[in-house]
Write a protein that binds this DNA or RNA. Structure first.
Lengths: 157, 157
DNA sequence: GTGCGTGCAAATTCTTTGCAATGCA
DNA sequence: TGCATTGCAAAGAATTTGCACGCAC
């Protein structure tokens, strides 16, 4: 459609799509960047409210949907439940979710072509996209687990 | 934990986990097998009701959760919305969702080790699991698209 | 016979929408 | 200034829970 901008920042994406950069949207973006793990709409609301006390929850939903549309945030799906959001780093990327603390990492080096070819051969579908999300343990949680191998050491409620 | 059964059928999984096979659960399983695309809880309810008219919606939710727990069904996530279910074919597998009609294929030949290694190197996480879902076009939708290249040809409402 | 599993309906949670007022471009 | 955007509150959808009864084992 439109020429992709050189600048993949959220602000640039907004501008490229013809959206305004309001105080509320800055607050939502700030909350997303502040959190180093996937956040739900409710968590964004809570975090962003400290920067913008009159923020409404409906605005958070509207903003998150809009940000996902322009590619500034990515939706993260849990195995059980869905709907957490993380800010996008680059053009295409995938998320790694820590099973210990919920922290989210993002990586871009992904060559899915062999897997996609295998899938196409096995199912007869032509493959044109993929959603990949890895689970693992972040460095910090590995350290904690070493220190206390007995406890499960879950941090997120 | 428990020794995995040789038989990966849903009934065997239920029995292995100590769950009873009731009329309602048979109806839910039947509905899942009957549908060749991912179905939501509401759709399962509607389909299963023809085999079991006194089925309650709450039971569908309870049953789907239980089936997911024992690995008899897999949750499918849409890019926008979540929570559709497909029956599991084998021990480990992934789903391919047709963007035209919503039909779901499953494939098992997946070697994610290179991707997981790359992710570990880039993020510092130790990777222990992956959720992969491909999107593409099934054979039937490709044929339809060839016949009518103009229309988008979406089938699902 | 014993509990697990169920139906029903109410309760709860999550998300969306309408509309007048506001403020960014 | 013009129109996208917002807050509030109410509507709506999706999901869960409590409890007495029925049925698989």
């Amino acid at each position: 459609m439109t020429e992709p901008p050189q600048d993949w920042s959220a602000e640039a994406r907004l501008a490229a799509a013809g959206h305004r950069l309001t105080r509320q949207r800055k607050a939502v973006l700030g909350a997303l960047l502040q959190a180093d793990s996937g956040v739900t709409a409710a968590e964004v609301f809570q975090l962003a409210r400290s920067a913008c006390p009159d923020l409404g929850l409906a605005t958070v939903y509207r903003t998150l949907e809009m940000l996902a549309e322009v590619g500034a945030v990515r939706r993260v799906h849990g195995d059980d439940r869905c709907e957490a959001y993380v800010p996008t780093v680059g053009g295409h990327g995938h998320t790694v979710v820590c099973s210990g603390c919920g922290r989210v990492g993002e990586f871009t080096a992904c060559d899915m072509r062999p897997v996609m070819a295998a899938a196409a051969a096995e199912t007869g579908f032509s493959i044109d996209g993929h959603f990949l999300q890895l689970t693992g343990t972040c460095e910090e949680c590995r350290a904690r687990r070493r220190a206390d191998p007995s406890g499960v050491g879950k941090v997120r409620s």
